[in-house]
Design a protein around this nucleic acid. Structure first.
Lengths: 221, 221
DNA sequence: CTCGTTGACTTTGTATACAACATGTAGCAC
DNA sequence: GTGCTACATGTTGTATACAAAGTCAACGAG
């Protein structure tokens, strides 16, 4: 009846729940609990949790179970350092494999993104920001690179629970995406890499400022 | 009696066997077989295989078990593209965190490496080549970067089974390591990154030549 | 002789049973 | 009242049982 394996379904359900902030960082992921909640046995539940942990979305200790990762500013520094060079490489490779339909697709994402920014639709804004980067990394055809960036993207999303503000959430991201788009279509891989890298580098610098600067900036009303 | 968890031991044993070329690419990793061979139950054996697969050292299909990955030249192109930027980042970060003991350690590795090259000890040569890169990436303190490079290193090692020649196996690697060492100690992160990146970039170009050039170069006597 | 089919065997995926370990609480000594 | 111990409970890690699916070989039809 069901399409795939039980463990796979459980993994997807868990992942969606964590990425959707239904399971906040620090939540215990106990095998019996997950199994009962999804109506499955412990074996696939255990396997799903293990996969979640491999992706960095949960942390496990011996005999102590798993908890949803609490990814803090310090980790984000790590993540964005990595992402800077990976995103640069992605743009370089994408620029070398870019076909006409790909250009059209990227342009349509950017147009929609523009619309979302103009109308103040922040959810769609965030979604299209990610879609732009996802489209670029798919173009690289480098599966290991794609997987690495996917993993980082997931961790960033989890981190957004604690650090409430999205790093790419400013309208500035859109204009930088246009710079990347121009670089990608310029048939200059070096320029493409620099553009992609600069984009993430700027986000990283913003992050460093907000970490080193006002430390406890969040102010309850 | 035993130190750690059974699944952990099984994972390490499997990993060592694959990396040591005792289990050549294409070998089927059946759960009952592994379990019996290691004298454990199927549960930890299954978990160990899953972890191996997650590291890219084996590939799994639904209901079809796992086989040791056959990593070919095509995959190595992917791997080295990634590694180029990651190794560059590692050198950049390492140069920013370099302390005096670290410098001494790197120098001692290079000295031993020189000795291995002079005496023609290829096994030790390869070992010290890896040790140099491992030392650098440990210096970064970026766990995600370290893990990524470790993973790639493992896959490269598996690939060496099919592509008999080691990409870093030339004495040229040693001289390039010295260039990296100089760059690391120059307190110039940009230069360090360029040096690390250039090193892998050269290996990647060699690979591309041997792939595009003489395609079936191996010649039986 | 070639190709398709059937059937037995093996393996995977899932469910469940059991021991070791961790955690938290109640009770007791001081 | 405070701190420690012992126990009770729940969870993890491991072992095993069972159904579904895949693989392979022998067999028979054409």
């Amino acid at each position: 009846m069901r399409g795939e394996a039980l463990a796979e379904q459980a993994y997807v359900a868990l992942r969606d729940a964590i990425l959707g902030h239904e399971l906040p960082p620090g939540t215990r992921l106990s095998v019996p609990d997950i199994a009962q909640r999804l109506g499955i046995s412990r074996s696939p539940a255990r396997e799903a949790i293990a996969r979640i942990a491999y992706e960095g979305l949960a942390q496990v200790g011996p005999h102590r179970g798993a908890v949803v990762s609490d990814i803090r500013a310090e980790d984000l520094l790590e993540i964005y350092s990595l992402r800077e060079v990976l995103e640069g490489l992605a743009c370089r490779l994408a620029s070398q494999r870019l076909e006409e339909p790909d250009v059209a697709r990227l342009r349509s994402i950017l147009d929609e993104h523009r619309h979302a920014v103009d109308t103040g639709d922040v959810a769609r804004h965030y979604e299209l920001d990610q879609a732009f980067h996802a489209a670029i990394r798919e173009l690289t055809r480098n599966n290991r690179l794609i997987e690495s960036l996917d993993r980082l993207q997931g961790q960033i999303r989890v981190a957004m629970y604690t650090t409430r503000r999205s790093p790419g959430g400013t309208p500035q991201a859109l204009s930088e995406h246009w710079v990347i788009f121009e670089a990608l279509t310029s048939a200059d891989p070096d320029r493409a890499e620099r553009a992609g890298r600069a984009h993430i580098s700027r986000l990283l610098r913003d992050l460093e400022h907000s970490v080193h600067g006002v430390h406890g900036k969040e102010k309850p009303p």
